[in-house]
C-alpha cells in the first residue's frame, strides 16, 4: 500500500541523507525504522508526507504518486497520514483541545478554522480521542502545563483526529523515560491492532522493536541495511547496522 522506490535525498549542503532506499509496507503493518542518529530515519519519514522534498525516487501511496502531487493534492494526502514527533511539537501556548483539533485542519474549511470555528462533531471527537489516551480532564489546560508523557498523548490524539490510514512516528519515545515509553508504544500498538492503522515508527531501543514491531528496516548512512522481522537481527546484522564497536543494551 506504501511503496518507496529508489528514494534519495541530498540536502542543500551536499549531505546525502538517503541513498536509493526502496521498500514497501502493507496495510496494517507495524514497521520499525532503526539506525543510528543521523542515519536518515527522520528524513525518510518526512519524505513520505513531503515535509522534506525528496531529491530523487518515487513514493506511491494507495496507488497515488505522492512525489508528483500538486500542493492541493498534498493536502488530501497529508490529512490521511498522521504524524507523531520526538519532541511532541505541540503549540505549547495553545490549549490541549486546540492542539488536538488541529488534526482536523486538513478536512475543515480553511476560512472557518482560521477564525477558530470547528464543527461541533469535531470538538466531540477531539474530546473522545483525549479520553481514549486518558487525559480528557486536561482538555482545557494549556499544552505546556502537561508533563512529557501527557504531551505525547496529545500528539497521538492529534494524529488520530486525522482518521489516518497511516501514522508516521518519528522517535516518539526518545524523550520519555522507559515506563512512559512503553505506555506510549502501547497506544500506538492499540491504534495499529484495533483500528488497522499502518504505523511507521523510528526507534532507538531494540527491545521496543522486538516487542512492538511486525517488521523492521534499518538504515545506516542513508542506505537500507536490513528489511525483515525483528528477530532476524542477529549479532552480525546488528554490527552492520550500528557499527563495529556497538554493543547491545537493554
Amino acid at each position: 500500500m506504501l511503496e518507496i522506490k529508489n528514494l534519495s535525498k541530498v540536502y542543500d549542503g551536499g549531505v546525502q541523507a538517503l541513498k536509493n532506499v526502496s521498500f514497501s509496507v502493507e496495510q496494517g503493518e507495524f514497521l520499525a525504522v532503526i539506525g543510528l542518529s543521523g542515519s536518515g530515519k527522520s528524513t525518510l519519514l518526512r519524505c513520505i508526507n513531503r515535509l522534506i522534498e525528496p531529491t530523487n525516487g518515487q513514493i506511491v501511496w494507495d496507488g497515488q504518486d505522492v512525489t508528483a502531487a500538486s500542493q492541493d493534492e498534498m493536502r488530501l494526502v497529508r490529512r490521511k497520514i498522521g504524524m507523531v514527533f520526538q519532541h511532541f511539537n505541540l503549540v505549547t501556548r495553545s490549549k490541549v483541545i486546540t492542539n488536538v483539533l488541529a488534526g482536523r485542519l486538513g478536512y475543515v474549511n480553511p476560512l472557518m478554522s482560521a477564525l477558530n470555528r470547528f464543527p461541533k462533531g469535531d470538538i466531540e471527537k477531539a474530546l473522545s480521542q483525549l479520553d481514549r489516551v486518558g487525559i480528557k480532564e486536561q482538555a482545557y489546560k494549556r499544552a505546556d502545563e502537561l508533563s512529557g508523557g501527557q504531551q505525547q498523548r496529545v500528539g497521538i490524539a492529534r494524529a488520530m483526529m486525522q482518521e489516518p490510514a497511516m501514522i508516521l512516528a518519528d522517535e516518539p519515545v526518545a524523550s520519555l523515560d522507559p515506563v512512559l515509553a512503553h505506555s506510549i508504544m502501547q497506544y500506538l500498538e492499540k491504534i495499529n491492532k484495533e483500528d488497522g492503522v499502518t504505523v511507521l515508527c523510528s526507534l532507538h531501543f531494540l527491545d521496543l522493536v522486538h516487542r512492538y514491531a511486525d517488521r523492521a528496516i534499518a538504515l545506516n548512512g542513508g542506505v537500507l541495511m536490513f528489511d525483515g522481522p525483528p528477530n532476524k537481527i542477529d549479532d552480525e546484522k546488528f554490527r552492520e547496522i550500528y557499527g563495529k564497536d556497538a554493543e547491545r543494551v537493554g
Binding site: 518526512r46 515535509l51 497520514i81 505541540l90 478536512y107 500528539g155 492529534r158 483526529m161
Partner: peptide, 10 residues
Amino acid sequence: GPLEAIQSTG
C-alpha cells in the same frame, strides 16, 4: 516543530 506538525495534518 509545531510548524511542521501543523503542516503534516494537511
